[in-house]
Design a protein around this nucleic acid. Sequence first.
DNA 1: CACCTTTTAGAACAGCCGATCTATTATGGG
DNA 2: CCCATAATAGATCGGCTGTTCTAAAAGGTG
Lengths: 215, 215
Amino acid sequence: MKKPQKTKPDGQSETSAEPANKPANKKISKGQKTRQQLIEVAASLFQKQGFHATGIFDIAEAGNLPKGSIYYHFPGGKEEIGAAAVAFAGAQIAKALEEVAGKAKDPADLMTKAAALLGDILVESDFQGGCPVCLVALEVAGKVEPIRQSALEAYARWQAIIEKQLCLFGMEKKKAAAQAELAIAAIEGALILSQVQRSPAPLRRLARQLTLSLA
Amino acid sequence: MKKPQKTKPDGQSETSAEPANKPANKKISKGQKTRQQLIEVAASLFQKQGFHATGIFDIAEAGNLPKGSIYYHFPGGKEEIGAAAVAFAGAQIAKALEEVAGKAKDPADLMTKAAALLGDILVESDFQGGCPVCLVALEVAGKVEPIRQSALEAYARWQAIIEKQLCLFGMEKKKAAAQAELAIAAIEGALILSQVQRSPAPLRRLARQLTLSLA
DNA sequence: CACCTTTTAGAACAGCCGATCTATTATGGG
DNA sequence: CCCATAATAGATCGGCTGTTCTAAAAGGTG
């Protein structure tokens, strides 16, 4: 009764914000650009500081973006930004993973390259930020369903990419699925070890060990 | 100059709070018991809600413990409690891991039992809480050194336990170390997947996959 | 240019949280 | 039983945070 549909945005709300395939991007109405930038900066901050430690205005400040319009673009507040940020980060990594997978020569090479991909994130941030999906997901997995869903999709997509590529290498589907899940789990875990140890060594050693499990 | 050493406690501060080997535990001066209980409740809450989402007084409240004495037992505030809680949780899991390792019949059995151990934590909390070390460590790894150290020690100890047991099974030391690290990483990663998916399946599948990598 | 829409600035609010301090009560050794 | 000390209650302070609201500015379309 109190909602005269003031032409608010929110677009198709939920998990959007993917740097994906949109061939006919006619016009990005300034505001939508701001929205996208907010998501990207948020993803970066969440990755380094986590969800709860990141103030909602820190996001705008860190990206020199209009603070006044945060709640205009994200009526759902912090949680909506969180869900969008996790979805974006997940899609970003998925994209990179697809590129890397295409270049891999064999299963072992794929494992190594995938591990190196996540490892680069760590080194680039000087071990300040790990997996952007993991941290936020664990912080609020029990309370904010949309964020949990975003994380769920991200992991599923990563796994599907690896699985598909393993199949292309001739591995049977069932084995490929199991190996892909092992790879995702092991890399995520090693990422944690590397971040805590502040050394890329665990991740590197794991990559090697992962290739040995391909027998 | 402002510290007339009012006989404050703080004991041997830093990372204490281990349910370890103290044969001659003469008397636990009421206060020390409270301190220990605070640590245990804190570990439980941090595991479910994370570090930043847990108020310092929630801890006392959740355990029906004296709120007024939190800063008496932990002059270092929340960060000191965090470090103690991570150390405690790490030691607790290490203890359970040692028991389980002793009962394992072979390397494959060890992998399965280790994974099941962590998995039980998940199920017991109805998928609300995962690895108590991991979450807190990731949240503050870049800012609070003592907590990072506690996490570091926990992971190292877990790995050492598995490595040692693998050696007892006849595996050569170098290979055992690598396999142990893979196991820890993979289990931690699968724990995340299981928590996000709210299903023990990823962890179970990973356990099986881990045994296959023992070839 | 005029006008409606989109977008933004900025203040204001309410609530919570971590930390500190003082006064009070419990504890336990002599 | 006494008393120093350990332990706790409770109030308080300062600061920060997420959210809402209103008015103003910017945008772009006819």
